[in-house]
Nucleic acid binder design. Structure first.
Length: 281
DNA sequence: ATCCAGGAGCTTT
DNA sequence: AAAGCTCATGGA
């Protein structure tokens, strides 16, 4: 009994305002899928494999020690943030309120910086299914073993792939961007220091990387650097702004988001985005 | 077949 | 500054 518990270490925890399906399937991450056999969500992130089984507000994380959970996953799942309070601050907006009613269990993950950087370079002018495929093939090719699969490669591991290799894996014209940006990171571009910089400065610096423009930079900042005011503007958000907030048409999307949602703009964006993307499904 | 997908980069006004 | 064109790839 005790031995069995030791072999498969589990962390059990009750967490409010968290829904696995909504969080893992809202377009912010690409390496989580539902495992029917385990009846749990399966992901490979932060260099290791993890299963997450949810029963209402009760969660099991495995294989995982309490130490690993506190060191890695607590931050990854953004567990120190008061989501109920944040959502209350956003409830004044009727469209965001609808989004929160539809998928109020979305949490903004705090993912690995390099993985998020490369993943969202791949996301440009692409669809989520194909993005996942490209990323998985890259991991299988040069990532370190992690459980039943392979972790996202380090910059050094990814640098083993040539532009031709990346194209064979389906990256298309983004192969060059991935290659060049990986080299810039290896040559000293410091992803770690970005989170201590002002929003505008960090964004400007990110945009010096190949394949990183305003939208991709905002995704990296929101999903891996903790900038909750980041408001990624993609095709879906443009539709939302045009359809639901046309009275603010004289403002740029960024001005609008900052004025209306402030430091919570990233959350508002995610609730709106996920709701709109699943409209009619 | 044509269009679109969590856009960016380059060229032309 | 702002608008226009092109960039792989696969699915609808």
């Amino acid at each position: 009994m005790q031995q069995r518990e030791a072999e498969t270490e589990v962390v059990r925890l009750s967490i409010p305002e968290f829904d696995c399906a909504q969080t893992f399937d809202c377009g912010q991450c690409f390496r989580w899928d539902y495992d029917e056999q385990e009846d749990a969500w399966h992901g490979i992130a932060m260099g290791r494999e993890l299963f997450v089984r949810q029963q209402n507000d009760d969660f099991e994380f495995y294989p995982c020690t309490q130490q690993q959970f506190d060191d890695v996953w607590r931050h990854y799942f953004d567990l120190d943030r008061d989501y109920a309070a944040m959502k209350q601050e956003l409830a004044f907006d009727e469209h965001v309120a609808k989004g929160m009613a539809y998928a109020g269990g979305i949490r903004i993950l705090q993912q690995d910086k390099f993985e998020t950087l490369i993943s969202f370079i791949i996301s440009a002018n692409n669809n989520i299914k194909r993005i996942k495929g490209i990323i998985n093939r890259i991991c299988d090719k040069v990532g370190s073993p992690a459980g039943s699969g392979y972790a996202f490669p380090t910059p050094g591991q990814l640098a083993q792939l040539t532009v031709d290799d990346l194209q064979e894996l389906g990256a298309g014209y983004r192969a060059r961007y991935i290659y060049d940006t990986t080299r810039m990171v290896l040559d000293g571009f410091d992803l770690e220091q970005l989170k201590d910089m002002p929003y505008e400065d960090a964004r400007t610096r990110l945009c010096t990387l190949c394949g990183v423009g305003p939208k991709v930079a905002d995704c990296i900042m929101l999903f891996s650097l903790g900038f909750t005011e980041a408001f990624p503007v993609d095709t879906w958000v443009r539709k939302i702004l045009a359809e639901l907030y046309s009275e603010y048409g004289s403002m740029s999307p960024k001005e609008f988001a900052n004025m209306r949602f402030g430091q919570n703009a990233g959350f508002a964006q995610q609730y709106l985005f996920h709701f709109k993307r699943n409209e009619g499904k």
